[in-house]
Amino acid sequence: MGRITLDKVKKAFGEVEVIPPLDLTIEDGEFVVFVGPSGCGKSTLLRLIAGLEDVSGGQIRIDGQDATHAPPSKRGLAMVFQSYALYPHMSVRKNIAFPMKMAGVPQEEQNRKIDAAAKALNLTDYLERRPGQLSGGQRQRVAIGRAIVREPAAFLFDEPLSNLDAALRVGMRLEISELHERLKTTMIYVTHDQVEAMTMADKIVVLRAGVIEQVGSPLELYRTPRNLFVAGFIGSPKMNLIQGQEAKKYSAGTIGIRPEHCLLSTDSGTWEGTVVVSEHLGSDTFLYVDLKDHGTVTVRGNGEVSLHHGDRVFITPDMEKLHRFDDKGLRMP
């Protein structure tokens, strides 16, 4: 079981309140991603749940039990660190065994669990090596192995993929998702990468300056961002935001349209502009179009679009998918 409830949890470092009182419930078995720009408090929040930082107020409950002041080791949580935090002087086997050794698990059971974890994570051939002799991806898997054998109530991941190169990152993303499918254990995952958030999460928590901006499934956040910050943060490339005269036509302070919800044409459309840069990715083409009065917008076209710098284009936004925000930046119905 792993239902985690944060009730008015807050954190201050001296005078500075990095997390104002915050409520959040994480259901058992959920894959929750905390996402936000660096310095938004997402790692601090994770460390509060882990017990590596004291809360300054409020309550943390794990499966209904008050764990606010419990030491990290008593919370039944396992953590995978950004740096992996493997013990460099121990072999892979000993690294994975360490939490069980601390818990006094009998040797036989230890071995059984290590072998199972190693098999699941493709580490069987590396059990006697030291972390220093492993590649980044392998180290990552050892860190996960060390977490798995504890059979924790929940896994905590602190930006686990940020030290891997791009290709490995995609692979590990899949592995972690698969792991979640298999174990059905609660996972809390911190990242600044919205792609990781979108692809892995059951539920995304968008944070800014210690405040939860929105909580929801990836598609909810994509379809109905609650405010301008979420609108700009979720989705790649970013949503185009247009203010001023054009927004007033829709009686909004700001209107937003995603690059993929724009229709391109060379002869007619709602907005007229000139192509500044075109990026051909093969599958898609991204055009950066200067709209004179409304600034530059990004538009996605299909891979075969052959438009170049200086070409004149017309853009028609899909009215169904147009987002409207009021003067305070909040979503309008």
């Binding site: 470092f13 017990g51 590596l52 930082e53 004291d54 030491p71």
Partner: peptide, 8 residues
């Protein structure tokens, strides 16, 4: 950054 217990 640390907890109160470790600080004392």
């Amino acid at each position: 950054m640390a907890t109160q217990a470790s600080r004392s």
